[in-house]
Simulated scan of single mutants.
Amino acid sequence: MKLGAFSVSLTVKDINKSKTFYEDLGFQVLGGDIAQNWLILKNEGCVIGLFQGMFEKNILTFNPGWNQNADSLDSFSDIRDLQKQLKAKGVKMLTEADESSEGPASFTIEDPDGNPILVDQHV
């Protein structure tokens, strides 16, 4: 199963302080909008998202259709196909992608310990 680019989405209290902290660790801004309280940062192959006031918990995030630089891929597993495969394996969906749609969509699941996992396709 190919889930796409991986990142950790961190819920932060002060996005400016968090940005400075992670920049001190060598991360550089890859995308996002600090005025909207979200940024994507990268250090080599590691990608993190900083989100202020958007989520209750940190989230493991996968982006089908993207590589680790948020570049669109020519070939990838569509989110609706991934969702069908997981449902067939008995994975409980917290939110679901509309299987009759095309293009961008997302679904959410949890691992056995309650860690949220967002699968979010942007293309």
Rank of each mutant, 00 (worst) to 15 (best):
K89P: 00
L30I: 05
M1S: 14
F62Q: 01
G31F: 01
S18K: 03
G26K: 05
G49D: 07
V91Y: 04
F27N: 00
E96H: 01
L3P: 03
K57N: 11
G65W: 00
L3G: 03
L39R: 06
I48E: 07
I109N: 05
T20C: 04
P104H: 10
I79Y: 03
R80Q: 14
Q85L: 15
N63H: 09
D98Y: 03
S100Q: 13
D14P: 09
G32S: 14
G49P: 00
F6E: 01
F107D: 02
D33Q: 10
E99I: 15
A35D: 11
G26W: 06
K42M: 08
V47N: 05
W66G: 00
M54V: 11
P104T: 05
N115C: 06
I34T: 15
K42I: 10
D33V: 06
Q68V: 09
N69D: 14
L86V: 06
L118R: 07
T20S: 11
D81A: 15
T61R: 01
L82F: 03
S7Y: 01
K19A: 08
P64E: 04
K2T: 09
I40D: 02
D120Y: 15
L41F: 08
R80H: 09
F21A: 07
T95L: 03
G45P: 01
G49W: 01
V29E: 14
P112R: 09
K2H: 06
L25C: 15
C46H: 04
I109E: 06
T61I: 02
I59L: 07
H122A: 11
S75C: 07
L94F: 09
F51G: 00
G45N: 15
N115E: 04
N58G: 07
K42W: 09
L41V: 08
Q28N: 10
Y22G: 00
I117N: 06
I109G: 05
T95Q: 14
R80G: 13
A97H: 02
E44R: 08
L30V: 01
N67C: 04
L39V: 09
G65S: 11
T11S: 14
P104F: 02
L60T: 10
G65M: 04
P112Y: 13
K87V: 14
V29L: 02
A97P: 04
G45F: 11
V123L: 13
F107P: 04
F21G: 05
K42L: 12
F51P: 00
F21T: 14
S106V: 00
G45S: 15
G32A: 15
I15Y: 02
T61L: 03
V91K: 10
V47E: 04
G90N: 07
A5K: 03
